[in-house]
Amino acid sequence: MARRVAIVYLNCLIICATTTALVSALTINQATTKPRYTKFSASTTEGIGPLATPVSSVAQSKNDDSGVAYYRLFHSKTGATCILLKTDAVVEVVFKLHDLDEQADSFIPEKALIEGDCKNEDYAFMRISWTGYSLVINFAKTPGGERWYISSLGLSVSPDLPQFHGIPIQRKSSIKLYHRQMLIPTTVGKSYSCSELEVPLETDEEDNPPPGLRGTLYLRLLQVQPFMYKSEEFEPARECKPQMLYRDETAPIAVGSTLAVAVLLTISGYGVYRYFKVKNVQYNTME
Rank of each mutant, 00 (worst) to 15 (best):
M1P: 14
M1W: 12
A2T: 11
Y9T: 14
C12N: 10
L13C: 15
T19P: 01
T20L: 14
T27V: 12
K34A: 13
K34N: 10
R36T: 05
K39H: 13
S41Y: 09
A42W: 13
A42V: 05
T45V: 09
P50G: 03
L51V: 13
A52D: 02
T53Q: 10
P54S: 03
V55H: 05
S57P: 06
S61C: 02
K62S: 15
D64K: 04
G67D: 04
Y70K: 11
D88F: 01
A89Q: 05
A89I: 00
A89N: 11
E92G: 05
L97I: 01
P109R: 02
A112N: 00
G116K: 03
C118P: 01
N120R: 14
E121K: 15
A124I: 04
T131G: 07
G132W: 10
I137Y: 03
G144K: 03
E146C: 08
Y149A: 05
L153H: 07
Q163T: 06
F164T: 02
K172H: 10
H179C: 04
P185S: 07
G189A: 01
S191G: 09
V199H: 11
L201N: 01
E202H: 08
E202I: 02
D204E: 06
D207C: 04
N208Y: 12
Y229I: 09
A237T: 05
K241R: 12
M244A: 07
D248C: 10
E249M: 13
E249Y: 11
A251W: 01
P252C: 02
P252Q: 03
A254S: 11
V255E: 02
L259F: 15
A262S: 12
I267G: 09
Y273I: 03
V278R: 15
V278H: 14
K279D: 11
N280A: 03
